[in-house]
Write a protein that binds this DNA or RNA. Structure first.
Lengths: 353, 353
DNA sequence: TTGAAAGCGCTAACAT
DNA sequence: ATGTTAGCGCTTTCAA
C-alpha cells in the first residue's frame, strides 16, 4: 500500500478507557444483594417481580455486561463450541458453519471458529488454544491429526465430533461421508456413460486427505473395470477458476486424447469448463467433466458441472446436534458414527449426447 | 435428509469424560510449587534451568493444557480480539480476516469471529456476547449500529475499530474506504468512456449501507454530468452468479436500450457477464459492465469484469495494527481514522472498442 | 530463585 | 424470596 492512498486523522469523540462494571455496581444501584442480581440476570430461581424489575432497570441503565470469564470459572461451565476447520475461503466450510449455527441457535451454545490453513502444526496450536478455554464441545474437520492433538483431545475429556470424513479412526464421534465411496461412485457413473480416457486434476494430496481418499476410491473402481487414469495434474494453494483453466489447458496439451476430466473440487472444475467452452470443445460430447462438492455457484454457468454433494449443511447440523445433546445431558453415549450418503448431481457434463 | 442416507453406529474406543488437569497436578508431578509451575509455563520471572526442565517435562507428559478462564480472571487480561462481520459467504470478509490474522499472528492476540447476517439485532446480541468475554479489542464492520450497541461499546472502554466504511461517525477508530467516493469514481469512468444509458443492479439497500453509499455517490456524480440512472433492479438474499444472470435478463427485457450495467458486487456482475456472453451481446461494445470488490474470482472469466478493489486485506491489517498497538501500549491515542483509496481495475468490460 | 497469601468476579450450595 | 459463604484455577504481590 502506498502512502498517498492512506489518509489518517483523529476522531475527537473517541471514548476513553473505563473501569468495567461488575455485579456489585448493579447490586448497589438496585439495592439488592449481588446474589439476587445474579439470579435475575440468569433467570434462575425465584425472584419477585418487583426486585426483578428493579435489577433489570439498574443493569440496563448502567449498560452492564456480565463477565463470562468469572461466570465460567465459578460454574465451571463454558457454553462455547470450538469449531476447527482448514479454511474459510473454501466455500465448503461456511456451509458447514451454517448448519452448525442453525442447531446451536436453539441452545445456549455458541460456536467459535478456528482456522488451520490445512497445516497440522497450526491445527495443534489452534486446538491447544481452544482447549484452554474449556469449551463444551469440539467440532474438528478430518480424521488425521498429530499425535499431540489426539492426546490433547483425549486428555481433555471434552465431547468431540470429527466431521467431513468417515474413512478412518475417530477420537470420539464422527459425522461425514466416505470420500472413497464418493470417488468410487463417480468412477462408475463415468464409465457407465462410456468415457474411457480419464484424467484427474486436483490438489497436491498430502495436504488434502479427503481429496486423496476420493482419488483412491476413484482409481480403485476404475481398476475393477480394467481402466487406468491416463494423466494427472496437480496444483498448490487455493482453488480458483483461473487455476482450473490453466490446469485443464496443460493436461489437454499433454494428453489430447482425454475424454473425461475429474476435478477434485467444483471451483477448478468450473474453471476447466470455462476453458473448454472458450476453446470450442464439445462438452460433454468430446470431453465430459465432473467436480466435487455440489457448490451453489455451479448454477450460474451455461452448462451445469456434474458433481457430488457432500451434504455440508447436514454434516454441520448432525455434529452440532451431538454436541448439544451431550452438553445438555440428553445424549450420554460417546463415539457416535454418522455416515451420510454423497449425492450425485448429473448436471450437463456427464452424459454422452 | 432421508433416513436411508444416514448410517449410525458406535465407536467403542471413544474417550470417557475425565477431570481436567490443573496446575496443581503439574505441581505435584514435578515436585515444584504451583507458582513456579505457572512461571515456567508463561516464561515469566527467573526460574532455574533444572526446575524449568522438570516442569515442562511433567506438563507435557500429563498433557496439561492451562485454563485460560482462570488465567484471564486472575490477570484481568484476555488476549482475544472480537471480529464482528455480516457474513462469511461474502468472500469479502474472509479476505479481511486474512489481513487481521497476518498481523495478529505476530502478537499474543487471537481473533474470534462473530457473524451478524446483516441484522442489527443479531449484531447487538453478538456484540453483547463478545463483550462479556472482555476481549482486548473489537473490530466491527460498518458504522451503522443500534443505539444499544453503541452504548455497550462506549461503556466497555475496549479499543474498537470500525472497518470497511469511512462515510459516517465512528465510535472510536475507523479503517476503510469511502464508498461514496468509490461510486463517484466509477460513474466518472463510465461516462468518460462514452456510456450514457446506465442501469444499476444490487441488493435491496436498507440492508446494505455500503452498497447504498456507493449508489448515492454514483448517482450524484452522474447527475453532475446531467445523466440519470435509466433503470434499476434489486434482489434479496445472498449474491450468486445465477442471481446476476436473472437480474440482467430482467433489466434488459425491460430496458433494452441500456448500454451500461453497474452491479453492486462482482458475483452478480460476473453472472451478468455470463448471461450477456450466452446471449451473444457484445461486451463492452454494446453493453459495458462494472462490479465492485476486486474479487479474485474474476480472473477466471474470458472477459475480466471492471471493478473497484476495496483493499480488504489492507483494511484488516490496519485495523489489527491499531488493536495490537493499543493492547501492547505502543499506541495511546484513540479515534484513529484511516481512509484508504479504492482502486479501479479496468478489466475488459469498461472500454468502448 | 522460590513460596505463601490474597483475590480476580462470579455462582453453587446452603442458610434464613 | 433473599442473603451468606466458600470456592472455581489461576496470577499478582509480597516475603523469604
Amino acid at each position: 500500500m502506498e502512502d498517498d492512498d492512506k489518509v489518517i486523522s483523529i476522531n475527537k469523540n473517541a471514548a476513553k478507557p473505563k473501569r468495567p462494571l461488575t455485579l456489585k455496581d448493579v447490586s448497589i444501584a438496585s439495592g439488592v444483594s449481588e446474589m439476587t442480581v445474579s439470579r435475575v440476570l440468569r433467570n434462575r430461581g425465584d425472584v419477585s417481580d418487583a426486585t426483578r424489575k428493579k435489577v433489570l432497570q439498574a443493569a440496563k441503565s448502567l449498560g452492564y455486561v456480565p463477565n463470562k470469564i468469572a461466570g465460567a470459572l465459578a460454574s465451571s461451565h463454558v457454553n462455547l463450541v470450538a469449531v476447527i476447520i482448514p479454511s474459510l475461503s473454501n466455500m465448503v466450510f461456511p456451509d458447514v458453519l451454517t448448519g452448525i449455527s442453525e442447531v446451536l441457535d436453539d441452545t445456549p451454545l455458541q460456536a467459535v471458529v478456528g482456522v488451520t490453513d490445512y497445516s497440522p502444526d497450526r491445527e495443534e496450536r489452534v486446538l491447544f488454544e481452544m482447549l484452554s478455554w474449556r469449551p463444551s464441545g469440539i467440532i474438528l474437520a478430518g480424521l488425521e491429526h498429530s499425535d499431540a492433538s489426539r492426546k490433547m483431545l483425549d486428555a481433555s475429556g471434552i465431547p468431540t465430533v470429527e466431521i467431513m470424513d468417515t474413512d478412518g479412526e475417530a477420537v470420539d464421534a464422527v459425522v461425514g461421508i466416505s470420500h472413497r465411496r464418493a470417488g468410487r461412485e463417480m468412477a462408475r457413473h463415468i464409465v457407465k456413460n462410456g468415457y474411457r480416457q480419464i484424467g484427474f486434476l486436483g490438489t497436491k494430496m498430502p495436504m488434502d486427505h479427503r481429496a486423496r481418499k476420493r482419488f483412491e476410491g476413484f482409481t480403485e473402481a476404475l481398476a475393477r473395470e480394467g481402466i487406468e487414469v491416463v494423466d494427472q495434474e496437480f496444483y498448490d494453494g487455493g482453488s480458483s477458476l483461473a487455476k482450473g483453466r490453466e490446469m485443464t489447458a496443460r493436461i489437454l496439451a499433454r494428453s489430447p486424447d482425454l475424454d473425461f476430466l475429474y476435478y477434485s473440487n467444483d471451483m477448478i472444475g468450473a474453471g476447466g469448463l470455462l476453458h473448454l467452452q472458450d476453446a470450442k470443445i464439445d462438452v460433454p460430447g468430446q470431453i465430459g467433466l465432473a467436480g466435487f462438492n455440489g457448490s451453489e455457484m455451479l448454477k450460474g454457468f451455461s452448462l451445469r458441472l456434474a458433481t457430488m454433494d457432500a451434504g455440508r449443511r447436514d454434516i454441520g447440523r448432525e455434529a452440532a446436534r451431538i454436541i448439544a445433546g451431550r452438553s445438555d445431558g440428553s445424549i450420554t453415549e460417546t463415539g457416535q458414527r454418522v455416515e451420510l450418503a454423497p449425492k450425485l448431481q448429473m448436471g450437463d457434463t456427464l452424459k454422452r449426447r
